[in-house]
């Protein structure tokens, strides 16, 4: 097995970027903010997956009309209240949104990264042992033993 497989390299890079996400989002021109009845939030396209953005926004549909655009490498999220919501409450929603964006992005990373092993797991679960792996590690004692040999 190689020391670093390709997706891991990619991930490590992404990780690094993500830890700096808050900072990136906070750049002047793309600063998350509240304007009237709307929340505006921005997420770097290189760091956030489309799936994460939509899965996150799904949970805001009960209170807001939501729109997403891509502009200049950023997802632009606009959440407009469906009913009257106080500014204080909107602030809390924004705070929650920022947190949720990161969480949903993390979730999306797990689900993409583990897709293969999950598929394998389910295939195995509904197979009859024909997909079983060879066990790991060695089994012999110093004298010498093999599970495939007949007599000890």
């Amino acid at each position: 097995m190689p020391k670093y497989s390709y997706p891991i390299m990619l991930l490590t890079l992404r990780m690094f970027l993500i830890t700096h996400t808050i900072h990136v989002i906070a750049k002047m021109e793309n600063q998350n903010h509240i304007e009237g009845n709307s929340i505006f939030a921005y997420a770097d396209e290189r760091l956030f997956s489309k799936e994460a953005i939509f899965k996150c926004l799904y949970w805001y549909g009960d209170h807001f009309h939501t729109t997403v655009n891509i502009n200049d490498g950023y997802y632009q999220l606009q959440l407009t209240t469906a009913q009257e919501i106080s500014r204080e409450e909107l602030k809390l929603f924004l705070q929650k949104l920022e947190r949720d964006l990161i969480d949903f992005n993390l979730r999306d990373m797990v689900s993409k990264e583990t897709q293969n092993v999950r598929d394998l797991l389910i295939a195995k679960a509904f197979s009859n042992g024909e997909l079983d792996e060879d066990p790991p590690g060695e089994i012999s004692d110093p004298v010498g033993f093999s599970v495939y040999e007949n007599k000890g």
Binding site: D141, V143, F145, S146, E149, N150, K151, G152
Partner: peptide, 10 residues
């Protein structure tokens, strides 16, 4: 010891 090391004898 480990009895299964007897292999088929086990």
């Amino acid at each position: 010891g480990e009895p299964t090391l007897m292999g088929e004898y086990f």
